[in-house]
């Protein structure tokens, strides 16, 4: 194989390979979402992401009224290794404009 990128998609992980160096969306277990640039991944969907924004959604119950209060917490992390067993889905960048 030459140095150029193989653009054929035969299996799910090919789509992730084509997202290298692009910003992706990752949904994780325990109501967490990540947006960041994909720098590395393997067959378990372990990943290294850069310039990551993490959003955590929590539902609290008000002590008085027992109403559900939905809160989102955001934080930014420069470089993050993500263990693949927590990954629910990966969404590659949209390419409609290219």
């Amino acid at each position: 194989m030459s140095g150029e990128e193989d653009a054929t998609v035969r299996e799910p992980l090919d789509l992730i390979r084509l997202s290298l160096d692009e910003r992706i969306y990752v949904k994780l277990r325990s109501d967490r979402e990540l947006r960041g640039k994909l720098h590395a991944f393997d067959q378990h969907l372990n990943m290294i992401l850069g310039d990551v924004e993490e959003v955590i959604t929590t539902v609290e119950i008000d002590d008085e009224t027992y109403e559900e209060i939905v809160r989102t917490t955001k934080r930014n992390i420069q470089y993050l290794f993500v263990r693949g067993d927590g990954v629910i889905l990966v969404s590659p960048p949209l390419r409609t404009q290219t």
Binding site: Q78, Y79, L80, F81, R83
Partner: peptide
């Protein structure tokens, strides 16, 4: 049991 590892830049 690891979720993330925050890496040094």
């Amino acid at each position: 049991v690891v979720r993330y590892v925050q890496l040094p830049p």
